[in-house]
Design a binder for these strands. Structure first.
Length: 537
RNA sequence: GCUCCCUUCGUCUAUCGGUUAGGACGCGAGAUUUUCAUUCUUGAAAGAGGGGUUCGACUCCCCUAGGGAGCGCCA
């Protein structure tokens, strides 16, 4: 099977020989910072991790804000855990977040020959050597070091031994001949100057015994070949950076600028995992977060611009800088994301929301969502709540596409008409749909407990009386209906709530809903009277 | 164990030695209201602990405690 050199054909040909800069609006571009080139280099794990998403965002903002390039490279040198679906998921995530990259996504694996070439070059110039130690030997040495309380670094005896002494039949690895004395300094835009004593850095393997390059070599060679000027990545790579710096030095290559960003933890301060509710950006899409809201939320995790909270893309491009990123890890707070998302939902026009809802529904599988087992303490997911409500109100709709189709049957105009009322009480697109479910509910409605409580004999009598009036209301609009109901309430001395609540229950099956008069208008006279009749009969 | 990093309201953060330590989310109270929301007003809420340096420290230095990352022929 042919291994593609890159994962996707885009407008440009290979980034490695593309020289023109990307298109960025002049108004949002700062003075070019000596041709910035950054890259996002995820390994194909199957989804775009939320922390990776922020790293990508930081890179993207830095590149676009400086009129530079934002490149993509897939770190797929480990063939065992690589597959095309995993890569596609990451690209999908980036596209959904609206982070566009320049050129094609480069496959690191496809560049193995080049990596080997450099390894041989290093061998030739005495910057690397063959090591004939077996994995078992190395492990034993490390165990001993650990037992004796020494640093767990492995000092290969082959560093100074001649190849002629090599045991027969053993395929050697190639190790970097790292300096033993002095220290290696990493000048980092986030972490500051961090120095590592060279005695604590062992000779890392750059070529496996099977001849394949390792990550640390590949990264350096690729970053160098791609002309990367700024490496923005997670702090988990900081120690690697010291070793990678030694490779740059061995090759006499220019060391790029570094910015190691802190990690994102779950609400409890622990590493983000499945039990926190969501790891991949696809989960956030499923829950109905808007890309712009997620971006705004993520950029504020570890970075700030004074007291600014809600920032436009243009402002971010203008303001974002790696020097302003904090060093400490932060915790993911769904409540704040919800607030931002609600804000952006209210800012988005109704037609676009309808479109976005359609996009979201196309991806939802209700059975899967309802089966989603997350930690009880994890925040409730809006998409799961939606799936549950669908099961209650419209059990015939098995998945998102079915709901989408049903909504289309009812008419986009109805959803659109309800949108102003819906959007100010929703934090997510999923909540928007949950609120709109009365449109597609199967009748006769199954009232939930709270709604059922609102329907007693008195309420039924009221509904009967109201139904009679509704038969003849001249204009079926929210305003006219409200006037009519208010008139009725005044005439009978009833509080408006005494009429509105039973009406709400009869029309939506719920004690909470968008304003009843809006519900009436959107449902239409026939459907409204039918639902009221279902209750009183 | 070794190396490196971090520590301001519950959470995200502002503060470039001098502030009543500010903002946002969340939480409490109130107003608006047909439910729920939205919106508005308002309240409570923080410099981990201990030493220095300084006229003055959240801010600089040291120690302690707590937390995190790394220590692979993974990336």
């Amino acid at each position: 099977m042919r291994q593609a050199a890159c994962y996707e054909q885009r407008r440009h040909s290979s980034i490695l020989n593309t020289t023109e800069g990307p298109m960025t609006e002049a108004s949002t571009t700062r003075a070019p910072k000596s041709d910035v080139v950054v890259r996002f280099a995820p390994s194909p794990t199957g989804y775009l991790h939320i922390g990776g998403a922020r790293t990508a965002l930081f890179n993207w903002l830095y590149a676009r804000g400086h009129g530079g390039k934002f490149l993509l490279r897939i770190e797929d040198t480990d063939r065992e855990r690589n597959n095309d679906d995993a890569v596609a998921a990451i690209l999908d995530g980036l596209r959904w977040l609206e982070l566009d990259w320049d050129g094609d996504a480069v496959s690191q694996f496809a560049r193995a020959d080049r990596h080997r070439e450099i390894a041989n070059d290093m061998l030739a110039r005495g910057a690397a050597y063959h090591c004939y130690c077996s994995p078992a030997e190395i492990e034993a040495a490390r165990d001993l070091a650990k037992a004796e309380g020494r640093p767990q670094i492995f000092l290969s005896p082959w560093r100074d031994r001649d190849r002629s002494e090599a045991p027969a039949g053993v395929k050697p690895t190639v190790r970097l001949k790292a300096p033993r004395d002095g220290e290696t300094r990493v000048a980092d835009h986030v972490q500051g100057d961090v120095t590592f004593p060279n005695k604590d850095l062992d000779d890392l393997i750059i070529l496996r015994s099977d001849g394949n390059p390792t990550y640390n070599l590949a990264v350096v060679v690729d970053d160098h070949d791609m002309g990367v000027t700024h490496v923005i990545r997670g702090v988990d790579h900081l120690t690697n950076t010291a070793r990678q710096t030694q490779i740059y030095q061995a090759m006499a290559w220019t060391v790029p600028a570094f910015a190691h960003v802190p990690l994102i933890h779950g609400a409890d301060g622990a590493k983000l995992s499945k039990r926190h509710g969501a790891q991949g950006v696809e989960d956030y899409r499923s829950m109905g977060y808007l890309p712009i809201a997620l971006r705004n939320y993520l950029v504020r995790l570890g970075w700030s611009h004074g007291d600014d909270e809600i920032m436009s893309n243009d402002q971010l491009l203008q303001w974002f800088d790696i020097d302003d990123i904090n060093k400490s890890a932060s915790r993911f707070d769904f409540k704040k994301l919800d607030d931002l998302n609600g804000h952006y939902i209210r800012l988005t026009n109704d037609a676009e929301l309808v479109t976005r809802i359609g996009d979201m529904l196309a991806h939802l599988n209700f059975a899967e969502l309802r089966a989603l087992a997350v930690d009880a303490k994890a925040p409730a997911r809006a998409d799961v709540a939606l799936a549950n409500e669908v099961a209650n109100l419209a059990p015939g709709l098995r998945d998102g596409p079915a709901l989408k189709a049903r909504l289309a049957d009812v008419g986009d105009d109805k959803l659109l008409a309800a949108m102003p009322a819906l959007k100010e009480r929703a934090k997510t697109l999923a909540e928007l749909v949950t609120g709109a479910l009365f449109l597609v509910a199967e009748t006769p409605l199954r009232l939930d407990d709270k709604a059922a409580k609102l329907i007693d004999d008195e309420a039924k009598a009221t509904l009967d009386a109201i139904a009679v009036r509704f038969e003849t209301v001249a204009e079926w609009t929210a305003a006219a209906l409200e006037t009519d109901v208010r008139t009725y309430a005044e005439q009978t001395g009833a509080k408006l709530g005494k009429v509105a609540q039973p009406l709400r229950a009869a029309l939506t099956g719920r004690a909470v809903s968008p304003p009843v008069f809006t519900v009436l208008e959107v449902l239409g006279r026939a459907e409204s009277l039918k639902r009221i009749g279902d209750i009183t009969r």
